[in-house]
Each structure stands twice: as C-alpha cells, then as structure tokens.
Computed example of a mutant assay.
Amino acid sequence: MSTSPFDGAWQLVAGECLDNGEMLHYDKLDIRSRKVLAEGHFTFISYQKGAFWSAGSGRFRVDGERYIENPDMGTYSPEALREYAFQARLMNDEWHNERWENGVRVEYELWRRIAN
C-alpha cells in the first residue's frame, strides 16, 4: 500500500457543518477531534465538552485535489456509511477540507498535523 501526503496524526483546529439547515461551528460547541491516517486507512475520535461525541474508521483515497473517505464503522447511522468527498488543500502542516453538496458547502475542517 502506498502512502499519501495526508498520512500522519492530525488535530482539528476549526470547523463547521450544516445540520438540518443550521451551520454548526465546532469551536462554539467545544468539539475537539483527532484523526490518524496511514496507508489508505483513517480513524478519528471526537469529544464535545470533554465527553465522547463520535468516532469512525474506514478507508480513504486521494484523487488530485480530492480527499475521499469511505467509513465502514463508527457512530454513524447505517445510511451515513457512504462516500464523503472533500476538496482538500495541504499547506505546510495545515489541511483544509471543504465538502459541497448541490452547490452548498456543507462542511469545512481545518486540521493541523501533530508534530512527532
């Protein structure tokens, strides 16, 4: 399995997602997350206000400027186990992700690589 420039450990710096028509801002909700990527696999765990909030794991691939996740387990409803495609941009140790549906940005994440 080949490696990608995304392989490594990441800490969520900021983010937001559209939920039932409302934009939720992760900093205001006190959501913290870490993600580890290695050889085509990802795992993340998220906390809200110091308590477990969500987790997931599966496969990922990079296609040009797209980062694509296919979760196969986690705290998802069965219909949420689907492909998620992001416009991704790596700038030094920062990773910017944007996910769009029907011309609307439904998710944005800013991750920072955790130093060794």
Results as ranks from 00 to 15, higher is better:
G15Y: 05
L110W: 01
P78F: 12
K28M: 12
Q48W: 02
V62Y: 00
D72P: 05
E109R: 06
V36W: 10
I45A: 11
E101G: 00
R105V: 03
R66L: 10
L110C: 07
T43A: 15
W53P: 01
T3E: 07
E69H: 14
E39Q: 14
G56K: 04
L90I: 14
E79G: 01
F6D: 03
G74P: 13
Y84M: 12
R105F: 00
C17G: 03
R99H: 09
T3S: 08
R82C: 14
L18D: 06
R112W: 04
A80F: 13
T75P: 05
C17M: 06
Y67E: 03
G40R: 07
Y67C: 02
Y76P: 04
T75Y: 03
G40P: 08
G64T: 05
A9R: 03
S46Q: 13
A55I: 05
H25A: 08
Q11F: 02
D93K: 07
N116L: 15
S2A: 09
S2P: 13
I31W: 04
A88V: 06
Y47K: 09
G8E: 05
A51Y: 09
L12F: 00
L37V: 05
C17D: 06
Q87E: 15
Y84L: 14
I68W: 08
E98C: 07
W53F: 15
E65H: 11
L12N: 02
W53R: 15
G50F: 08
G40A: 07
Q11M: 10
E39W: 04
Q87G: 06
E101K: 08
M91C: 13
L90H: 02
T3H: 05
N116A: 15
V13C: 12
G15D: 12
A80D: 15
D72Y: 11
F42S: 09
E22I: 10
N20P: 02
K35A: 13
I114D: 12
A55H: 06
R66W: 03
P71T: 11
E79C: 06
G64C: 03
W10P: 10
W111C: 09
P5F: 00
D27I: 03
D27H: 03
A14R: 11
N102A: 14
V36Y: 14
V106K: 06
S77W: 12
F6N: 11
Y108M: 06
A9W: 02
N116Y: 12
R61Q: 14
E109P: 02
S77C: 08
T75A: 11
F44P: 04
W111M: 11
R89V: 03
N92M: 09
F44N: 11
G58Q: 07
D7P: 04
D63C: 05
K49M: 08
I31C: 05
A9S: 09
L81C: 09
E101D: 02
D93W: 00
